[in-house]
Simulated scan of single mutants.
Amino acid sequence: MSGVQCLANARLVLPDAVVTGSVTIQQGMISEIVESDHIPTGALDCEGDFVLPGLVELHTDNVERHIEPRPEVDWPHLSALIAHDAELASTGITTVFDAMRVGSIHSGKGRYLDYARGLANELLAARAQGLLKISHFLHLRAEICSETLLEELAAFGPDDRVGIVSLMDHTPGQRQFRDLTALKTYVAKKRGMNDAEFEAHVANLIDLQARLGTQHEAGAVQEARRLNAVLASHDDTTAEQVATSQANGVGFAEFPTTVEAAEACRAHGIAVMMGAPNLIRGGSHSGNVAAAELAKAGLLDIISSDYVPSALLLSAFQLGQIWNDLPRAIATVTANPARAARLSDRGLLKPGLRGDVLRVRELNNTPLLRGVWSQGERVA
């Protein structure tokens, strides 16, 4: 944590307004916010750029992309983790919940082996050694259609910074992959399956769900409670599925696939998270509901970068145009995800909170990052 840093002559994005002023960070914490165009001696003149809280990312597959840049390619993990951390910092993300799959399949063309416990050890060690620029927590993606979910979850404990456990039911023919054609396109490209191998893969997943699905879901809910982690649902499609999520104690819903599910989430007090790529591209790559449609209906609370870290900031500014309300839009990538993850020390420009701030200039409706500070230290 640095000494004193003052960012002045900035447009400060506060919870319900944008004002001209300065932010002072001292010993890693925001110590003062002043509404004024005065530039104190020694302050950084932001030249009218926006200053906003650091972005809070609840679900990113980016760490998996770094450790396995191509199928079956296992990249050196420490190098991958440091590159992942630096990439996120360069996009304005100052808090991340790194998504790691738990629950494996050990046979067939569609096999995927356990890796989360070992990778988490390496990530936590890198953090303890001060090698990382931003704040990292774990998000365990509990794969219901797997052979070893509960054993893998049992390997984690209360000291592992597990902040989120999400229930992932990728049974073919429902939720994200109601359209088997979309699933086949995705899997065939990623795993190189032929028609027969794909059919065998689908049959195996359906069998696993039939035999173990109920046990795995109930067990994952209990493990989330043991770890004191927020429970998330994934790809809820129907009101009935949302009711089950509510009964399980889900705090937020990742990527509901229909308006029906999003409306049910709102009725049950479950925050709705959608993907930034969906918003930017104008629709879901799986053919599900568009994030912009939910935004216009007032059914969108949180944005996640999902598989494109740089999409998070861009999506927030695009959402600001849809709503004509930049503070409300910025909250979807700062205050709202922080609240959903039970983090009360970040997500807002407010004295007493972490000195995680961004300097952003807008050019042709595109946000350009001009500085990133994590606990007062400039990291990008």
Rank of each mutant, 00 (worst) to 15 (best):
G3W: 04
L7D: 00
A8C: 12
N9D: 15
R11Q: 11
L14Q: 02
P15M: 09
V18G: 09
V19M: 14
G21E: 03
T24Q: 11
G28N: 05
M29G: 13
S31N: 03
S31H: 09
S31A: 14
S36L: 08
H38Y: 07
I39Y: 07
I39G: 03
G42V: 06
D45L: 02
C46P: 00
C46L: 12
G48N: 10
F50G: 01
L55R: 01
H59W: 00
H66P: 10
H66T: 08
I67E: 03
I67Q: 04
E68V: 12
E68Q: 13
E68P: 11
P69L: 13
R70L: 04
R70A: 09
P71V: 02
V73R: 06
D74P: 05
A89M: 05
T94D: 08
A99N: 12
H106F: 15
G108A: 11
G108K: 13
L113S: 11
L123W: 09
R127F: 05
A128G: 04
I134P: 02
A142K: 03
A142Y: 04
E143G: 15
E143S: 10
T148L: 00
L153T: 07
A154C: 08
A154F: 05
G157A: 11
P158K: 07
D160C: 07
G163T: 01
M168W: 08
H170Y: 04
T171E: 07
P172H: 00
P172V: 00
G173M: 12
Q174P: 02
Q174F: 02
Q174L: 02
L180H: 04
A182Q: 15
K184D: 13
Y186S: 06
V187E: 04
K189V: 00
R191K: 09
G192E: 06
D195L: 05
D195T: 15
F198R: 05
V202Q: 01
Q209S: 11
A220W: 06
V221N: 05
A224H: 08
A232S: 14
T238Y: 09
A239D: 11
A239F: 03
E240H: 15
V242W: 01
S245P: 01
S245E: 02
S245D: 04
Q246P: 01
G249E: 07
F255G: 00
T257V: 13
G269F: 14
G275E: 04
A276L: 04
N278K: 02
I280A: 04
I280V: 06
I280H: 06
R281T: 10
R281S: 06
N288F: 05
A292D: 13
A295N: 01
A297P: 08
G298W: 05
I302D: 03
D306I: 02
V308M: 13
V308R: 15
L319R: 08
Q321D: 14
D325S: 12
I330F: 06
I330T: 00
T334P: 07
A335Q: 08
P337Q: 05
A338P: 13
A338S: 15
R342P: 00
D345C: 15
R354I: 08
V357M: 09
R359A: 10
N364H: 11
G371V: 09
V372G: 15
S374F: 12
Q375N: 15
G376V: 09
G376L: 09
